[in-house]
């Protein structure tokens, strides 16, 4: 009996000790949200903490919706999101401050055996709304088109639908919630089409040209390739000094040139255009 109590006490003390370590002295920044942005923020946070040991940064996933609602309720310092806060139902965007940290290009991808190389915006829209169902209709061989969409409410789907579908409703089809799964399924399924961020295009799948424009970073910068979105880090009101410093670090030209480009994002400093949440473009 005594021994059991001893063990319980020891575990308890250990637990308290560990929690104590977690909240070590200094400033704590908690970041929650978009899984697409998570790897970037995690890497940036660990690099940042190497030189700023007085700051403890915790980065978690959970999705854009979670990030926005948690930062709105004040539970976390920063909410990561793939979508503009204005576009998320239930979020009062006026209370949040947007810090755009990167740009992601999104491209339609198809199975490698699909012979089509280029689609017009109209054809792409008709495929995703179910008007075109066979590759033959867009100049390919006679084969059924299998549409693989992304999860409802996910940032990438919101972006894709806003730009490509022009207000039309997507046909109901298979949905997958991660870039990696989509890429594998498209690679394995004959006649499949889906879309992913640029960094997930590899030699297993084929990226399509849109209106004759290639899906490459240089074309995103000029908006010649129109399917792209910002990665946002939202704070509730103006960030405090420590948070601001970290955000400045993420947005610093040095970090943008190395980490952000390495991970397949596009630096915000390279963009020659800006876009607001209504979709209005402005040339810098």
């Amino acid at each position: 009996m005594k021994r059991i109590i001893g063990v319980i006490l020891a575990v308890g003390i250990l637990a308290v000790g560990l929690v104590g370590c977690g909240t070590k002295k200094g400033h704590a920044i908690t970041i929650v949200g978009s899984t697409a942005l998570q790897p970037l923020v995690e890497r940036a946070a660990s690099n940042y903490q190497l030189v700023n040991s007085n700051v403890a940064i915790t980065v978690q996933g959970g999705g854009s919706g979670t990030g926005l609602s948690q930062v709105q309720s004040g539970a976390v310092t920063i909410g990561n999101s793939d979508v503009f806060a204005e576009d998320q139902e239930g979020i009062k965007a006026a209370k949040l401050v947007d810090h755009k940290v990167a740009v992601v290009g999104i491209t339609p991808i198809v199975n490698k055996k699909v012979t089509v190389k280029n689609l017009t915006a109209k054809q792409l829209r008709q495929i995703f709304t179910g008007k075109i169902t066979n590759w033959q209709q867009v100049g390919g061989k006679k084969q059924k088109i299998t549409v693989i969409n992304r999860s409802q409410g996910s940032g990438i789907r919101n972006t894709f639908e806003a730009i490509v579908l022009a207000g039309k409703t997507a046909l109901r089809s298979q949905e997958q919630d991660s870039n990696g799964t989509v890429q594998k399924i498209v690679a394995a399924t004959p006649g499949a089409i889906s879309y992913t961020s640029f960094s997930y295009v590899n030699d297993q799948v084929k990226a399509l040209n849109l209106n004759g424009v290639q899906p490459i970073a240089a074309n995103v910068m000029t908006n010649a390739w129109p399917i792209w979105s910002y990665e946002h880090m939202y704070t509730k009101g103006k960030p405090d000094v420590q948070t601001k410093q970290f955000l400045n670090y993420v947005r610093s030209p040095k970090n943008q040139k190395t980490l952000i480009t390495d991970l397949g994002y596009i630096s915000i400093h390279d963009m020659k255009v800006t876009r607001d949440y209504h979709g209005n473009l402005r040339h810098k």
Partner: peptide, 24 residues
């Protein structure tokens, strides 16, 4: 043909919605 279950819709959707709204 592709289908879905209660649990699969829950796991894919819950992170993309905001507490208190209809989708949530």
């Amino acid at each position: 043909s592709p289908a879905s279950t209660l649990t699969s819709v829950l796991t894919t959707g819950i992170g993309n919605t905001v507490m208190g709204t209809l989708p949530n």
